[in-house]
Amino acid sequence: MDDGGQGRTNGARGIAARLAAQVSGLLFPPQCAGCGREVADPGTVCGRCWSHLRFIDRPYCAVMGTPFAHDLGENFLSAEAIADPPPFRRARAAVIHDGIPRRMIVGLKYHDQTNLAPWMAKWMVRAGGEMIADCDVIVPVPLHPLRFWSRRFNQAAELARAVARISEKPLEPEALIRVKRTRQQVGLLATERQRNVSGAFRVPQGEEIKVRGRNILLVDDVYTTGATVKAATRALMRARAASVDVLTFSRVLPDM
Score class of each variant (00 low, 15 high):
231 A>Y: 06
72 L>S: 09
172 E>Y: 09
134 D>W: 07
92 R>L: 13
58 R>M: 01
187 G>N: 07
47 G>Y: 09
175 A>R: 00
60 Y>N: 06
142 P>V: 01
51 S>L: 06
189 L>T: 09
2 D>S: 10
16 A>M: 14
151 R>N: 11
69 A>F: 08
184 Q>W: 14
240 R>I: 06
147 R>T: 13
37 R>L: 06
43 G>N: 01
58 R>W: 02
43 G>D: 01
134 D>Q: 12
47 G>M: 11
77 L>C: 08
120 M>R: 10
8 R>G: 13
249 F>R: 05
90 R>S: 00
61 C>G: 00
151 R>P: 09
87 P>L: 04
97 H>T: 07
37 R>C: 05
193 R>Y: 10
212 R>V: 08
153 F>Y: 12
250 S>V: 09
96 I>W: 00
129 G>T: 13
124 M>N: 03
74 E>Q: 06
40 A>I: 02
222 V>T: 07
101 P>Y: 03
133 A>D: 10
16 A>I: 11
25 G>P: 12
103 R>T: 06
199 G>T: 05
182 T>K: 13
196 N>P: 02
99 G>H: 03
115 N>K: 13
160 A>T: 00
253 L>H: 05
35 C>E: 04
45 V>M: 09
11 G>M: 14
246 V>S: 10
215 N>I: 10
170 P>E: 09
162 A>H: 11
18 R>A: 11
223 Y>I: 12
29 P>R: 07
216 I>H: 06
51 S>K: 07
97 H>Y: 13
178 R>W: 04
133 A>F: 10
112 D>V: 11
31 Q>A: 13
235 A>V: 08
41 D>T: 09
193 R>L: 12
118 P>V: 08
218 L>E: 01
185 Q>R: 11
108 L>S: 03
210 K>G: 00
114 T>H: 09
245 D>H: 04
226 G>V: 08
159 L>F: 15
84 D>N: 08
193 R>G: 09
221 D>W: 01
122 K>Y: 05
202 R>H: 14
3 D>I: 10
184 Q>N: 14
34 G>V: 08
109 K>Y: 13
193 R>E: 10
117 A>P: 01
164 A>T: 03
244 V>P: 00
227 A>N: 08
234 R>E: 10
217 L>P: 02
251 R>G: 00
182 T>M: 15
54 R>H: 13
167 S>M: 05
111 H>L: 03
234 R>C: 08
124 M>W: 03
2 D>V: 09
55 F>W: 12
99 G>V: 03
229 V>A: 02
182 T>Y: 11
62 A>E: 04
115 N>V: 13
249 F>E: 02
133 A>N: 08
108 L>M: 10
191 T>C: 14
111 H>G: 03
68 F>G: 05
137 V>C: 13
129 G>A: 14
44 T>M: 07
201 F>W: 03
80 E>H: 04
199 G>V: 07
244 V>A: 00
27 L>A: 15
42 P>Y: 04
129 G>Y: 15
244 V>C: 01
